[in-house]
Each structure stands twice: as structure tokens, then as C-alpha cells.
Amino acid sequence: MTTTWFTVGLLTDIPRLSAKVVTVQGTAIAIFRTQTDDVFALEDRCPHKQGPLSQGIVHDKKVTCPLHGWVIDLHDGTALSPDEGCTPSYPIRISKGVIELGLARLDALARTI
């Protein structure tokens, strides 16, 4: 299984403590930038009631869902205790200020394009 890297845009495209959304075959993926310029990617869907996490308030390495206030860890998409749930996360790499999103099984994706 290989990971293919897609250019998402420049780090500076995303204001600190906010997010931008990209779509992959209809699935929305939120790319978050923290105060310390770390970047994370999660599916843009809260495990609770599918709220758009990209629209939430980002703090430290977490985001608070705008619908009911669940707090999701940006590292791996898990809900903070005592809430339980997890949203898929994706690898990110940054080189020279360019953000790239890693998508696995691209061979499968490529066939459907």
C-alpha cells in the first residue's frame, strides 16, 4: 500500500488557529493549522453528529465542534474523554511552506477517476 502526496496549498493560506477544507471524491477533509504552525488533517465530520469540525474553534492541538462542543484531538481524531468516538485522520507533510496531504490506496482511487 503506497501513500500518495497531494499538494493542498501554502501554509500561509490558512490563518493560525483555523482550517481549510479540501474534498477527496466527495469526502470533506479539514486541514488545521495550529498557533505553533503544526498542521493536521481530519475528516470534516464530528464522530458525534457529523458536525463540520473545520468550522470549530482550534486551541492547542484540539478543535471544538461547532454543533455541540465535543473536543477532538487533532493528532488522531479521537474525542476527548468523557466523550467517545473517533474521526479518521490523514498524514500531512510540509516542505518549504507547502502542505501536502497523504492519501493511502491511491491505486484504488486512481482507478475511479
Binding site: 493542498v8 493560506d13 490563518p15 481549510k20 477544507v21 496531504l101
Partner: peptide
Amino acid sequence: AHEFALPLELV
């Protein structure tokens, strides 16, 4: 404007 931009389609 960045708030209201259409999401970028990657694939």
C-alpha cells in the same frame, strides 16, 4: 473571502 471559498477538490 477565504472563509467562503469553495473547497479545493483534490481527487
